[in-house]
Amino acid sequence: MKINILAFGQVAEVTGKNSWSISDIKTTGDFNRLLLEDFPELKSINFLIAVNKKIIREDVELHHEDTVALLPPFSGG
């Protein structure tokens, strides 16, 4: 199983990459937990999680070739 990850803004900066892929992750909750374990700095960033473009608020099951995108807020103008 392959899940594609896209990161924007500070999430990309903290993780050091805009896109990568992962495997053997069943849900967005599991993904988020692992991400925060690897990058504790992300805990203070209030980023959104989207699965196949749809922003989700609850735990969602992930499937092969799903794309999970991570979007933090920013306010520059």
Binding site: L6, F8, A12, N18, S19, L48, A50, K53, K54, I55, R57, A69, L71
Partner: peptide, 20 residues
């Protein structure tokens, strides 16, 4: 929707928002 773009990578991505 919110369109997010990264001009370094030419990454344009639409996020769909459901009114909460």
């Amino acid at each position: 929707k919110i369109l997010s773009c990264n001009v370094l990578e030419n990454l344009f991505y639409e996020f769909e928002i459901t009114p909460s």
